[in-house]
Design a protein around this nucleic acid. Sequence first.
DNA 1: TCGGTTATTCGTATTTCGACGAATAACGAA
DNA 2: TTCGTTATTCGTCGAAATACGAATAACCGA
Lengths: 117, 117
Amino acid sequence: MAGRAALNPLTASTTIAAGADPERIATLAKALAHPARVKVVQTLLRRRSCIGCDIVEEIGLAASTTSEHLRILKEAGLIVGEIARPRVCYSLNPEAVAPLRVFLQLIETAPAPALPE
Amino acid sequence: MAGRAALNPLTASTTIAAGADPERIATLAKALAHPARVKVVQTLLRRRSCIGCDIVEEIGLAASTTSEHLRILKEAGLIVGEIARPRVCYSLNPEAVAPLRVFLQLIETAPAPALPE
DNA sequence: TCGGTTATTCGTATTTCGACGAATAACGAA
DNA sequence: TTCGTTATTCGTCGAAATACGAATAACCGA
């Protein structure tokens, strides 16, 4: 089952993704639908280790605003925050993006449309 | 450079995606951040051929609302609309999702965080 | 116990989104 | 030319998102 590692490209479960729950897909996409949140993820990609409030100055918004973006990412399951008082250590949850990734891959490998160019 | 077919999994250009333009990523994600728009894409995946106003009844919203969703998808480059008066023939533009897909793949293959569980 | 440090919540203002019906556009067919 | 069919644009409304500063919470160390 793994989850990570394999990154199963296009298997049986893929076909199902064609009819995957639109709500779920949309929710995941929405979590990444703001530049600040993408930046947060990119930061966590760069500095693999968890980060505290460094994220705040990294993306250049007020602490309260950043906290809200982190909340949204957390709610979507994309990141997790380990409390290490007085700070919080954030890190990515790589498996969370799978449904959206599969959906995109399905689009990308779709047969070219009839468009005669 | 192909574009489709290969679906280049994780190559040199991937690393760059770690610092990919957050605006671009966010814009793509935003286009898919609504269930109705995901449904439109799913419909176009199922019925590979282009569709006219069938999309309207497929997703069950008013024609004007649907048109707006289609506009957003078009603006993001995810779909194209070929005019065939008096109707419009929509189809997917599979290559458009590449940047977002690469970004997601990068997340998914990121080294597991330090979280000792 | 008392500050110091960091994160989150709260209240608020502004902007954007999402939905609808009505009106409009744009052509093929009769 | 006039009608019918389909898509889009427009005006509007309520809901949601975004941003901020102030206030609050929650611990660790002195």
